[in-house]
Structures are given as structure tokens and as C-alpha cells.
Write a protein that binds this DNA or RNA. Sequence first.
RNA 1: GCUGAUGUAGCUCAGUUGGUAGAGCAGCUGAUUCGUAAUCAGCAGGUCGCCGGUUCAAGUCCGGCCAUCAGCUCCA
Length: 635
Amino acid sequence: MIKVTLKSGVVNEYAAGITVYEIALGISEGLARNACCGRLNGSIVDLRTKVGSDCKLEILTFDDPDGKKAFRHTASHIMAQAIKRLYPETKLAIGPSIDDGFYYDFDREKPFSPEELIEIEGEMKKIVKENYDIERSELPRAEAIKFMEEKGEPYKVELILDLPEDAVISFYKQAEFTDLCAGPHLMSTKYVKAFKLMSVAGAYWRGSEKNKMLSRIYGTAYPKAADLEAYVTMLEEAKKRDHRKLGKELKLFALLDEGPGFPFFLPNGMIIKNILLDYWRELHKKAGYVEISTPIILSRTLWENSGHWDHYKDNMYTTVIDGEDFAIKPMNCPGGMLVYKQELHSYRDLPLRVGEIGLVHRHEKSGALHGLMRVRCFNQDDAHIFMTEDQIKSEIKGVIDLIDSIYKQFGFKYHVELSTRPENSMGSDEAWELATNGLKGALDEYGLSYVVNEGDGAFYGPKIDFHLEDSIGRTWQCGTIQLDMQMPERFNLEYTDKDGSKKRPVMIHRVAFGSIERFIGILIEHFAGQFPTWLAPVQVKVLPISEKFEDYADEIYKKLDNAGIRAEKDLRAEKIGYKIREARNERVPYMIIVGEKDLEAGKVSLRSRVNGEEGQMDLSEVIERILKEITEKTN
RNA sequence: GCUGAUGUAGCUCAGUUGGUAGAGCAGCUGAUUCGUAAUCAGCAGGUCGCCGGUUCAAGUCCGGCCAUCAGCUCCA
């Protein structure tokens, strides 16, 4: 007999060899039907797994992240099975579950067409309906290889060959289809009730661009049709707030064929950009920063000295001036170094916080461009902090605090990643250790949780990255804090210490918005174009009912303008409904409507974006309210 | 850069098996002067992404390039 401790704390005894599923059945019929997999002594297992000894068991359903994985992974097997039935010549690569669904990579002469996706979905429906048991089995290495060779699946053979010698090689079988797979899986194909194949795309075998490109089919699956529908609706809603679409509609920016990846800012977008910069300058002044500006074009020798030339020359734009090579800056730091060297520094000057809104250019591959999120020229809200070693932690904490306050202002949620020393890096082990520990220590003391990306740091130092989400859950790196002990060395930076000796400062590179362009892209999606009053390009639109009230409208417009409110007037001979419709489409926070009644009373009628019609009131009241929203940055 | 898809008026799109282009909105002109999401009429607007080829004839077919979109790779 074996003792099984269930998640609820109940301890039951069973005969050895009972399956997880049978135990689950014993708990409750209903639970077992929804169950995907179990957590046996902490590891995720299939419901068919036999329980051999005393253990702890938790039954997982679709609602658990691991249950979701098992569920979607089964959906991916069903897709692969359908494809092998319809197009037997297709070779299978890999097919995992992902955040929102699953994919499977295939090798096939001809790419999958949308019509074929529909056919595949049809075949999948059959497989689900046919209700196949999913069985797990294991094979010794040699037999496993032979099995896949006989099936004519070279990618599977390669996968097995790459497994460690002592690895358990497991297979999952549903009817005629057997796949190499670590599992876990559902008990049967029948549970995958609602699924949809989303798209086809190319993907390199094993993620390397040196390998063959395979056809990847993306899909998603849910236990209930309603959940699938909700997901599809969410995607449609997200599309409506895509910053590229809203950027055009709201006339914020333009991306033209004449400058791929080089965004044009239109008057409305420029207002937002300038307000963000005003806000940034105000915050940074309070936080003890000074501001500089360094040139966009600097000599190649400078970039060789900084190390950028070695690492990134293929992604730098260059030019020749008077026969000498120059490069357009991809980063602001070398300029910052040169500014530091303009004078001698005392330990009393440190930490020295030097900000720069710098326009940088980086050649991104054509396929990587994406609206304002990934561009070839952008403004960094950069700053370099020069300090002593014992100021590292407090300075980093200060920067984290600043970045956090900025993201909170906009209501963003973010996650943090710490990237450590990459292969192709410069500097000593000691310097890297000191820098990495400095970042870790500051994060720990600040109490921020973070994930570690081993080997993802910059060539000159480790970094903390702040990632913000866009409207469909993709995350984009915005803020970053990088600790650098190499540039000060390379540029021979010094300060004079108390005892008169020359010391080397430590440097932080940091950005909060990251790229202003990208930040604006995320802001557009975050607010779905409905910018809070303090950011809105137009804060109030004055709409006279008819041309008879033009003078009164103009009088009100002037008062708003004098109060420092961004107002517009719409004096066209259109009906009020039409003007309101347009103002709404422009996402203007406030409309002031004036007609006979208002003129007589000497008042205005207010319509707000959030509350709709608010009725008649004094203009002074409206102005006060809007000014309050602007200064307090609320709404 | 790679795989696939797409590119027609300022915008959103239609355009049969090849026979030299259409709608709605926006714009302009005129009429309308109106109380909370589209007033009516008229006018104007296109080297069908660019270059080349096939053909009596190309927006439609073929090739090359450019750009965009989805994903992969990359992202100091």
C-alpha cells in the first residue's frame, strides 16, 4: 500500500501502481473530467502516470498554468496528427505550448495556405470527436532512434541524439500518431473542445538563422468555446488600439516609404513628445540631474575607442567628412565621456548625474521594424551617472525609484530582468562581479523581483531592464540601468579623492522612457488614444451650435487659450451632432458647446469624454477643472 | 536578413476568364443655421508601389526591386 497526500491535506491509501487519473476519479468525477495533469512530488506528470510510492499529489486543471500547458500541448499533437493524415510527406519538428496557445513546426515543400488551415482544423475536429486515448510509453535510446528513422522523421532523430545519455525518452500515442514528447498530456483527445489555427509563419529549425526555415502553424485552444471567443474578441479589440492605426487616425506620426524606420512626428504627436520631455526635465531637475547635448556625428576613432565600432559597426551609419570616417551615434555615452573630461572633477562632485535627450541611429534589419516600437532612429532619455564605488547601490536605487515613479504616473505595470555578462565582453572578472553584485544588491534592497538572463548583458556591463506590455501582451524593453566600469577605463576618466589621489569613477547608463518613440507607441495603446488631459494634443474643442454663435465661441476659445489650455474651435457650418462625432473620434477630453441658451445665460454646456453631457455651467468652473487635471496629471 | 502574405484616390476598400479604373468617407463649391455620434447637392481627385518582360492589349500574367503586415533571427 502507498500513502498519497492530496493537495487538500487528505491522506489516502491505495494499492501501488494506481494511476494519477484513478486517484483523481476517486476524489470527484467532475474534477477528473477537467483535469489536465497532476503535480506529483512537485513535478508535473500525466494523469496516466502510475503512482509507485508514498507521494504528494495535486490535480491540475486548465486553470493552472501547468494544466494549460498540458492542454495546449495536446492540441498541438492533434494538429500534427491531422497534418500527417492530410499531408503525410510533412516532416515534424517541434510543437510546444506557448503563452496564448501552441505551435508546431513542420518541414514541407510548399507552405501551408489559409485554405489548408481550414482543412487541418476540420481534420482536428474529427480527431477530437474520435476520442482517442493518449498513451505514454518509453523506449531505450537506440530503439527510439530506430523508431523515428523508420517513420522518416529526421528532426525527431536529431532531437533524440541531442538528449543526454541517461535521459528518459518518452513517446505519446493517440491512435495511429506517435510523437516524441516529454509530456505531460491530457488523457484523451476529446477534451480539446475549442481551438483555432491562427497563422502560418516561418521559423528557423532550433531557432538559429543558420538552419533551415520551417513552416510554423500557430493555434490556440480552450476547453470551452466561450473562452476561445473571448480570446479572439480580445485580439480584435487590441487591433483597434494598435499604435500604428491610431497614430495615423489621430495624426500623431507617420512612417513613410521614403524613410523606413525613420518616423515623422506630426503636430499632434509633437505635442505629446514635448510634454513628455517637459515632464522628464522637471523630474530630473528635482532628482539632481544636469542636462547636456552632444553631437550626432562623431569620428570613427572615438567609436573604436569606446568599443562600439568592434561590436556594432554593421549596425552603424557612417559618413566621410574631409576624407575622414565618421559615424552617426548609436549611443550617447562616448559624447558624455568627452563632456566629463572637459574639466577636473573632485570627489565632492560625485555622484554627477548628467542627462541627455539624445537622438541615436541604429541600423535595424528591415524585418525587425515595427511602427514606433522598433525604429532606426529614436530619442533616448539618457543619463550617465559618475560616482564612487560605494555610491553604486544608493544611486541605482535612486534610478529605480525614478523609473518606478514615471511608470506609475502612466499606470503601467512592468517586470524587471537582470542580464549578466555576455560571451563577447570586455573587462576583468572582478569588475563584472562588482558590477553585477551592485545591480543585484540594489534590486534586492529595493524589493523588486526579477528574472535573470544569463549572458544577455551589454558588452561593457550588466544591466537591469524594465519591460512594459503592449495591448496584446507583447512586452517591450523600455527602461534600463547599466553599470559600466569599462567606458571610464577606456576614456581614462578620473576624479581627485580626499587624499589628493586620482581615482577612476564608476558609471551608470540609464534610460527611463527608453526610446521616447517606443514609449509613445506604448502610451497610445495603453490609453487607446484617449490620452489623459495633461497629455492630450487638444484638450478642449469649442463647438458653436450654428454660425450665429461664432463670436461667443471665439470669446470662449480665447479665454481657454489665455488660461494655457490647448483648445480648438470648430466654426464650420455643420450640425452639432457632426461636430461632436468628429471631436469624439479625435478623443478630445472636453467639448464646450455653445448656442442660444448659453449665450443668454453667459454660460457654456460641457460634454466630457468620460461622463458625456454634463449640462450648463460657468466657463471659469470648466477652466479650473481642466487646469487642475493638467497640473495634477490626473484623468 | 529569412519564410509567407499584402501594396488600387488623403483614408477604408471594390475591380469578373487580360479589353487603358469605381464606391464610401475626407477635400473643394453652393445651399442649409440646426442643442449632443454623420444635412443635401455639385465638383475635383489615381504613372493601379517602382522597374522590366509576355501580349494587338496588363491594375489583372511573369521576373526583379522597394515598402508594409505576421512570425523567426537580431535588438548596445
